[in-house]
Design a protein around this nucleic acid. Structure first.
Lengths: 160, 160
DNA sequence: ACAACGTACATGACACGTCATTCATTCCGC
DNA sequence: GCGGAATGAATGACGTGTCATGTACGTTGT
């Protein structure tokens, strides 16, 4: 019970700086998006995935895989987006359990209107302050950590 | 209206990787903390700040400054933590508007019990996958972005 | 002294997330 | 083909976050 292996000084600092940065950043991005277009970051993510498909329709489980959201979060969020007219739900002929999420015209208009401002915000708040090397380093770091996390999570639900 | 200056390919990739990483990471950390100690990351943050003061008491606005939370979020969260017995509120003699947030015994026990597991989770999910150079780079990146963000936010609410 | 303004904090309404549970359907071994 | 496991999805309850607003107290200028 002696030393529970605290973080080293630099790790502490990095961790706190990171948490702080992320909090501020997403808070601002969310506010900008909300104010300019009435969408949340979550809405935006869903709409982007739908827009990226040729016919603007996806099965919920595909959306889930892309967004890495909890199933119930997605379901609830789709319900809310449906209520706002951004998407609609359709039955899935080839799988009786399944469904389709379909981008509505209003949804397409919303993301089309929102995207330039949001991208500009991401750029100006985030990327313009970074060198290309930092951007590359961030991608590497994120990918590494994600891989590590996913094996850890896998081990947990599917042990030897 | 021609090109709304999209992100470059590498920026896109970095951004998506980053968002994904953060989502997974905080989801896991939250679950671990919740499962092992009944605390959320938010609770943990508040309790850490209180523990860091000699007498375990802070004014809400000080907490707010440290955590960089919205005022109402803090207020609501304190109400909930109070209901769970983790903190208590006291009146502030030298400022009739003010209050004190005080760490209770239960609160101190909770964070003491939670800390080793949480730190270990942060280490194993995050830092053990990174080199010291990456940690240093992350701190630099985060600090840069935070500084950029804060000047941007400042300009917005306090223009020339 | 007191009006005007700013600061510290709380609250109500409502959107968002998570967990546990439920339900229907499909898949798979026998 | 049938019983059981797995899969795709929805839902209710409850904790969390945000916005707008309210309220009480302090500060400052005249």
């Amino acid at each position: 019970m002696e030393s529970p292996r605290w973080l080293r000084e630099e790790e502490q600092r990095a961790w706190r700086a990171y948490i702080r940065m992320h909090g501020q950043l997403t808070a601002l991005l969310n506010r900008q998006l909300q104010a300019d277009s009435g969408l949340s970051l979550a809405d935006y993510g869903v709409l982007v995935e739908l827009t990226d498909t040729p016919d603007g329709r996806l099965r919920p489980f595909e959306l889930q895989r892309e967004l890495q959201w909890e199933q119930s979060r997605l379901s609830h969020h789709l319900t809310r987006m449906q209520r706002r007219g951004l998407i609609s739900r359709e039955e899935c002929p080839e799988d009786g359990r399944g469904a389709f999420v379909v981008l509505t015209d209003a949804g397409r208009e919303a993301i089309t209107a929102a995207a330039p401002g949001h991208v500009e915000a991401v750029r100006s708040l985030f990327f313009e302050g970074l060198t290309p090397e930092q951007v590359a380093a961030l991608e590497r770091l994120s990918t590494q950590v994600t891989a590590r996390i996913e094996t850890a999570a896998g081990d947990c639900s599917d042990p030897a």
